[in-house]
Amino acid sequence: MLYRPESLDAALALMAEPGAVLLAGGTDVYPALRDGMPPDRMIDLTRVADLRGIALADGTWRIGGATTWTDIVKAELPPRLAGLQLAGREVGSIQIQNAGTVAGNICNASPAADGVPALMALDAAVEIAGPEGLRTLPLHTFLKGPRQTDLQPGEIVTALLIPDGPGRGAFLKLGARKYLVISIAMISAVVEIGAGKITNAAVAVGACSPVARRLTALEAQLTGATAADIPALCAKADLSDLSPITDVRASADYRGEAVPTLVARTVLTAMEAPHVA
């Protein structure tokens, strides 16, 4: 049976019984379901009004869980969120962006999820509704491993919460082709600048570890750096938190070695200009 609740309460009530499959855009759900037994109950969240939309309140951007990537790409957002919008443009194809949702991307917890590095660099938190009410936790805590999250039975990701602020974001993806690729490696950065120097930096790397990682040591080193310093700083960055693997898309060597270059470029892009069309 498929349920299409129109309120969060109704959705949560449906979730009270175990065994339900949650569905928003469906772009990851259907391929996984196809060859198994039909689920007893599926819950389509796309009609829950509270789950869709982007709004700024009290210094926090709230992106509803069922907000599509197209919604994000089209939204008028500050330069700080430019990396998220650029990442959105590279989620699959536009057909996928029209259906796929931001919560779906994080709940699927693929190491190569396009949205995750950008959200991490923005210090995003995950808002979760459950039988006990609302709870919020940082995205990096929410993501526990490949295909593993902290989501408990009966819970629904209702929103991503992103602190507003100054600065500019950027996103870069290394792949076999220009578009429609699953990433070999991807980087998102957010930098704040004062007098030509970085005053604050956030850098996250995806597809090079089980869960995307922030490069905190490098972030600290970037503070005070000018554009000219970036390549050298990134070249000797401590990447020990990353654990790139060899798979059909690339070798661990290549992933590991390409990262410093991509990080430098992403940071420089963020320093130069917002680039969202």
Partner: peptide
């Protein structure tokens, strides 16, 4: 871009367009 990869057991690992990359419009 079109790379076929078999694993040590002889399984073709690139058996879908997600891993086997033919030229797209932008290429």
């Amino acid at each position: 871009t079109e790379e076929l990869v078999w694993d040590a057991r002889g399984a073709l690992r690139t058996h879908a367009p997600s891993t086997y990359k033919i030229p797209a419009c932008s290429d």
